[in-house]
């Protein structure tokens, strides 16, 4: 009887403790939750709702149903922007992943300050402001006195100056090149750290069994850095889809819409032309595309 009473008291104390801890947990989360709901969830819902309206400044919104979505897929500029965005993603995501893995696999076992120096060098464009990066690249690409034209002519590779950012044939490639230099820093740091965490005893055992460097990499290291690869794939894909600052600072989507991306076109439509509803419809489409691709990437990684 006494034991039962003791057990009941212990149970009720434990429940009270759990409740208190739960309340404390929610209380700690509350400030973040309020901001998250106010500045992320609410705008997202508002964005979806507004996408069904013809919404502009200082005028009551007019319900248009799927009108904005239908117009989107008849809008040549949007389709061009979508195509350009896909090109950026298709080129920059694999190149970023492969290049950063290659660099990381070279530098991760370097000892001392040399490894740190290389990590710093590759990470520098990430922490440099995008405006500063854009200004430097704009100077290098300059049609009249840019270093690329200077070197190209000096080496006899080109006869006359190329208008890198002003010529449809080159502009998107130039943007992708800049994007690559600013995108590889973080994956390199992540890969170096992931490679350092690979169980060395497994590698040693494989080497003792006669595995060469390539076999060690694919059979031992690659499976262990797979979660990092998945993370890098997802963030690089999202960043590539959201390419905006470089376009805004360097080409404004030109020449002839050859560097328009969905993000830039959303900005232009919503904040230059004040077509909020139409811009939001593009935002919803972009979000769906990113969500589907990310889900597919996770699925593929899990099946591996």
């Amino acid at each position: 009887m006494a034991g039962k009473a003791k057990k009941t008291t212990g149970y009720s104390m434990s429940r009270a403790l759990v409740r208190r801890e739960t309340i404390a947990g929610y209380a700690f989360m509350l400030p973040n939750l309020v901001f998250f709901v106010g500045f992320v969830i609410y705008p997202m819902i508002q964005c979806v709702i507004t996408s069904f309206f013809d919404s502009t400044m200082n005028r009551a919104d007019i319900f248009v149903g799927l009108g904005n979505y239908i117009e989107l897929f008849q809008d040549g500029v949007f389709l061009r922007a979508l195509w350009n965005t896909i090109i950026i993603v298709v080129v920059s995501v694999p190149v970023t992943c492969i290049f950063s893995l290659w660099v990381s696999s070279i530098i991760y076992d370097l000892k001392g300050p040399f490894c740190s120096l290389l990590r710093c060098v590759f990470y520098l464009p990430v922490v440099t402001g995008s405006v500063a990066v854009a200004v430097v690249w704009k100077w290098m690409y300059n049609n009249y006195y840019g270093i690329f034209n200077y070197v190209g002519k000096g080496l006899g590779l080109i006869d006359k100056n190329i208008n890198w950012l002003g010529d449809e044939r080159f502009a998107l490639g130039c943007i992708i090149l800049i994007l690559l230099t600013t995108s590889v820093g973080q994956p390199i740091v992540l890969y170096v750290s992931a490679l350092n965490n690979v169980d060395a005893s497994l590698v040693e055992a494989a080497e003792v069994d006669g595995a060469n460097r390539m076999q060690c990499f694919w059979r031992i290291k690659w499976p262990q850095i797979m979660p990092t690869t998945l993370y890098i794939l997802v963030i690089t894909t999202i960043n590539s889809f959201q390419c905006f600052a470089l376009i805004q600072l360097l080409t404004s989507g030109g020449p002839n819409h050859s560097t328009d991306t969905i993000m830039y076109y959303i900005y232009h439509t919503a904040f230059k032309l004040y077509r909020y509803g139409y811009g939001n419809a593009m935002g919803v489409v972009l979000a769906i595309i990113i969500a589907v691709l990310s889900a597919a990437q996770f699925k593929m990684a899990q099946s591996d």
């Binding site: 049609n143 009249y144 002003g166 030109g254 020449p255």
Partner: peptide
């Protein structure tokens, strides 16, 4: 020249 705007032209 699609690579420059008014401000760039002034500088050039």
């Amino acid at each position: 020249d699609a690579s420059i705007a008014g401000g760039d032209e002034i500088q050039l």
